[in-house]
Amino acid sequence: MVAPGAHGLRRAGPGEDFWQYRPATHGDTARSIDWRRSARSDSQFVRDREAQTAQAVVLWASGGQGMTYSGAQDRPSKRARAQLLTLALAMVLLRGGERVGLLGQPARSGRVQAERLAEGLINAVPAKGDEDAPSPKALRPNQRLVILSDFLTDPAWLEALLTRASGLGVRGVLMQVLDPDEESFPYSGAVLFRSLSGAVRHDSRDAAGLRDAYQARLAERRDWLRAQAESAGWHFGHHTTDRAPALALSWLYQVLEG
């Protein structure tokens, strides 16, 4: 599991984890000498620890119109589930001392930041259309970025974002959030399909006849997303809204440092 809070900077400094032994120099006190290591040679050695700092984690949940879809009254919309996961992950990370923020906003630590994040999610303005994408210009060096979306619209934006992310040392996670109906495609007979924005419509006389082709396209999209993530050193996962959110939260928490 990811240990939230302190993260190594790969150099000596304040921290808890061992970094390296180095020969003692003028100014090192007797307390700083590692006498056990020094006893194995004719020199005195100091045990350095690795400098650590709280990492900055930024989160982005799609507000595209398609995210408001739910296939059943007893299931949350994709947008509601993505926002829940965003806030839950933020709370876990903040509890560990991380600096957390929504993409494009300052990443901060502390209890007050949890309130800011909740307010930001509640007041987030949905996109006017089906398309929605995070801005590559909002990325900052060495952040960790978590993106939650259904990734059902044109994903061309992802390549540009991952290219900029690689240049800035930004690593992260892609989480595809879908309604189970979007996985199984349970439709049959005459069905009028339309996007939530109304921009795309398809009138089918035999919806069941589309199932195999639809699921093949979905699998193709998912393979493409996984390949894009892996080529950038990121992680890719998927979650459906009929499953317990704790499962997705646990996975996100574990891979965030991967």
Score class of each variant (00 low, 15 high):
residue 92 V to S: 00
residue 196 L to R: 01
residue 253 Y to P: 04
residue 107 A to C: 08
residue 64 G to E: 10
residue 65 Q to M: 01
residue 161 L to E: 08
residue 14 P to C: 08
residue 237 G to T: 11
residue 105 Q to F: 06
residue 14 P to V: 06
residue 226 R to K: 14
residue 169 G to E: 05
residue 125 V to M: 13
residue 36 R to Y: 13
residue 160 A to H: 07
residue 4 P to L: 09
residue 135 S to I: 05
residue 41 S to T: 15
residue 68 T to L: 05
residue 112 V to D: 12
residue 174 L to K: 13
residue 58 V to Y: 03
residue 187 Y to M: 14
residue 224 W to Q: 02
residue 97 G to F: 08
residue 49 R to I: 11
residue 222 R to I: 04
residue 215 Q to C: 05
residue 150 D to E: 10
residue 113 Q to S: 10
residue 41 S to E: 12
residue 38 S to N: 05
residue 197 S to G: 13
residue 160 A to P: 05
residue 10 R to W: 12
residue 184 S to M: 09
residue 193 F to E: 00
residue 38 S to F: 09
residue 79 R to M: 15
residue 204 S to P: 05
residue 203 D to Q: 07
residue 235 H to L: 07
residue 253 Y to K: 03
residue 12 A to E: 14
residue 166 S to D: 11
residue 239 H to N: 05
residue 140 R to I: 03
residue 45 F to G: 03
residue 158 L to V: 09
residue 93 L to H: 07
residue 241 T to C: 11
residue 194 R to A: 11
residue 59 L to H: 12
residue 112 V to L: 12
residue 199 A to C: 00
residue 194 R to V: 01
residue 195 S to K: 01
residue 178 L to W: 07
residue 38 S to Q: 06
residue 189 G to T: 05
residue 128 K to F: 11
residue 193 F to G: 07
residue 103 L to R: 13
residue 94 L to C: 01
residue 52 Q to H: 07
residue 55 Q to F: 02
residue 206 D to A: 15
residue 48 D to S: 03
residue 79 R to I: 05
residue 126 P to K: 03
residue 121 L to H: 12
residue 211 R to V: 10
residue 34 D to M: 01
residue 128 K to G: 15
residue 239 H to I: 04
residue 53 T to E: 13
residue 220 E to V: 06
residue 8 G to S: 13
residue 17 D to H: 13
residue 196 L to A: 01
residue 102 L to N: 10
residue 1 M to L: 02
residue 135 S to Y: 08
residue 122 I to F: 06
residue 132 D to E: 02
residue 106 P to F: 05
residue 132 D to N: 03
